[in-house]
């Protein structure tokens, strides 16, 4: 039992380390892209995309919007797991 708890704690710490590594890679990548953006000319398909760091800002806002809107959408289109199966009689899966 005690061993299990220790294993779980180690596992959680490993996952947290992965999380920090992921964050580190993302941040370093963004810093490199910022430097490139300052010194190199990047052009987009439309003029508005030529604005400083436009794709990055767009991606950040779009991601937040997708998650927040999705969360809001849960109120309208989320039902119990057996929403269909209790009427259609598909509970007795074999």
């Amino acid at each position: 039992m005690k061993n299990n708890d220790i294993n779980k704690k180690v596992e959680i710490m490993t996952l947290e380390r992965f999380g920090r590594a992921f964050t580190f890679v993302v941040v370093i990548g963004i810093v490199i892209l910022l430097v490139i953006e300052i010194f190199a000319h990047r052009h987009g398909e439309f003029a508005v995309e030529d604005m400083f760091f436009f794709p990055g800002i767009f991606g950040f806002i779009a991601f937040i919007f997708v998650v927040m809107a999705g969360t809001l959408l849960r109120r309208f289109i989320m039902r119990d797991e057996d929403y269909y199966s209790k009427r259609e009689g598909a509970n007795d899966d074999t």
Binding site: R42, P55, V67
Partner: peptide
């Protein structure tokens, strides 16, 4: 350069948004 950095900006900043939300 434009295609690669533009796409990486979009993806990495979206990745940063995930980190922030988490």
């Amino acid at each position: 350069l434009s295609h690669v950095t533009g796409q990486l900006q979009l993806l990495l900043l979206a990745g940063l948004a995930f980190v922030v939300l988490m």
